[in-house]
Amino acid sequence: MRTERVRGFVLALVLAASGVAAVSWPTLTSVVSREKVVGLDGFIPRWVLLEPIAANGLTDAAVQAAVKKEYFPNQFSVIPHDGDKVQVAGADLKWRAVDTKSYNVNLFHFARALDKPTSDVLFWAVTVVYSPKEVPNARLAIGSNAASVWWVNGKEVIGIYGDRQTVIDDGVSRRLTLQKGANVIRVAVVNGGGATDFCARFLDADDKPVKGLTVNLADPVQ
């Protein structure tokens, strides 16, 4: 416990030194601990979110085109850190590590607090989930407002399309193996207008949330 507090303090100092301004979100908080335990409901609570990129269209084809377009280098492999910046269409966009207070990650809150657009935009989000053991026959189960495309360890596993609201376990991947140690989850959420958010968790072979997972955004040891 004492060690965790010290880590948090050190992280806070690092954040301050990095020049990342504190932002107040209704449902999100800045990351102050090294590791976050995934709760019993399985929802992944910690993500690194990129400030929104302009995007249009929610049909299958439009979303696939939007998420496959290369906006910044190593788009499908980078594991960003809080405060990292990328340049997209001449603008500097910042990655921000957040914890969510709820089952979902509210992208509308995220962008609005930063005075960024929330409509006709694309959000990239990345997280690294650690599993204490290999979990075969697992599934990534997600919901998003609106469309989203998901990758687990570099492989595209889910795409849901159209103007839709976030429903828990809306899109579910085919069976996959959650590997022991680090698993990189990457998502692109495309929003048309109004609210925008997402949620994600891993289900086991019995469709129950996988237990014992943690999230750690430090560079993963594969």
Partner: peptide
């Protein structure tokens, strides 16, 4: 409409 249809919410 073009791909994507009308703006959602419109």
């Amino acid at each position: 409409l073009p791909p994507g249809g009308p703006p959602p919410g419109a």
